[in-house]
Structures are given as C-alpha cells and as structure tokens.
Amino acid sequence: MINKIKKTGIRALLYFSMIIYSLSIIMPLFIMIMTSFKSNAEIFNNPLGLPASFKFDSYIRLFEKANYGQYFSNSVFVTIISLAIAITISAFASYALSKYQFKIQKFIYGYFIIGLIVPIKLGTIDIMKTMLSLNIYDTLASLIIVYIAMAIPLSVFILYDYIKMIPDELSSAARIDGCTEHGIFFKIIAPLVKPGLAAAGIISFIPNWNEFWFPLVLIKTRDFFTIPLATGQLFGQFDTKFDLVFAVLSLASIPVIIIYLLLAKQFVKGLSAGAVKG
C-alpha cells in the first residue's frame, strides 16, 4: 500500500514536470505564431490569448512587398547545392580513407576530424578577402563554398563509419570480376551507404539552413539574402510593427518545424549515432 502511494506520488511528480517542460517548449512557439495573426492594437491589449480573427495581412505583405519568396528560394538553393556537394565529396574521401590502408591515411582522417572542433567563424576576415579576390563576394556562391567546407568534417566523420561497416568481401569479389576502384564505389558502396548519406545530410541541414553569421558578413544585396539574414534585416525594419515581426519569425521557423516533425526519427537517429560513437 505505502509502496503504491509512493509510486503514484512519483508518477504525479513526473507528469507535473513533463507538463511544465512541454509548456515551456510549446508556449513561446505558440505565442509567436498566434501573435503574427493579430493586429498591432490587439497585441497590446491581449498579448497572450488567441487572435480575435486570423488575419494574414502581415504574411501577404511579406511576400508581396518584402520579397520573401526570393529569400526562401535562395535558402533552398544554397542548402541543397552545398549539402549535395559536401556529402558527395565527403563520401569519396571517406571511402578512400576507410577502405584503403596507406601511410598517411590515419593522419588525413584526423586532419578532417579536427574540423569538428574548429570554429570557422574565426577565419571570417580571410574568407571575406578570398571571396573578394575570387570575385564572388556578395553572391550565393560564396555562401555555398563556405557551407560545403563547414559540412565536410561532420560528413566525413559519419560516412567513414558507415562505409567501414560494409563488409570487404563485396568489394574484393567485384575487384576479382575486374571492377575498377571507383567502379566499386559507385556500383557497390554508394547504394549500400544511402542511409549514411541521408544521416549526414539531415545532420548538416539544420545548422546550414539556420546559419546567420556568413550571410551577415558576405551578403550585402537584398536579392541574395537567405532566410536568416532576411529575418535579421526585416526584424530591424519592422521593429515597430509587432504583427509583421512575428510573421517574419514564424515564416523562418515553420518550414524547419514541419521538416523536423516529418523526419523526427531520422534526425534523432542520425544525431545520437554521432554522439554515442564519439
């Protein structure tokens, strides 16, 4: 009997803390989205509750006058291209490093891994200069290159293990059949390592999509703004108009939230694999 009371007590406590925790996560997001539908006057009179009516004026204004569609397509473009290239070249390197034994193989792997703890921000001054001399400062290409570089260490780190786990017998058999080394990669390794490629892509997606520092220093023309930079700039421009500001924030968040809710399992699997292994 006593045991049972104690247990229900603990249960109650557990649920209580879970409710607080989930409210602390959901409330700010809920307020953000609800406020974006209110009028400026309503925000001051009724900051917490539901909007009297859902008005989409601020969203319409963002797309029609503030060119939001452009920022969205810029972000999609930069993210997809940079992730695709980063993961492709990382897969090449990981294959060469994990399936062949040569003198400096360990050293090169370590060289890539250092990148996991190197803050690339500290090289910003030189990156700006390089982009200027390549004549791509203030273009999406400058962002793409930086994001490729940023995604390489983690991708190599993940793909190295995925490729290593593929049994050597498969490739030796192919080799006996006269398959070339790169042929082995494309015909045997690549199809088998698809989950690894997906994991690497998913993990780099969030930091890449949300990255604010490099657009801030590399992009000056509005036509090339990505969503985070547009968020920062529009927030400054509309700061007296709360409905618009919250609409800006909602627009920046909703796509990632949806993608996460759809792919939650993969996100968690990919990320925790990295953590446990390390």
Partner: peptide, 18 residues
C-alpha cells in the same frame, strides 16, 4: 582524386582562413 576535393575545399575555406 577521391580525397582531394574534400581535402582542398576543407583546407582552403576552413583551416587556412583561420
């Protein structure tokens, strides 16, 4: 050929700038 692309981009745009 397999290692160089990643190696080069990573070196030129991450380590060298620092």
């Amino acid at each position: 050929i397999f290692i160089f692309p990643a190696f080069a981009v990573y070196t030129l745009f991450m380590l060298l700038p620092i």
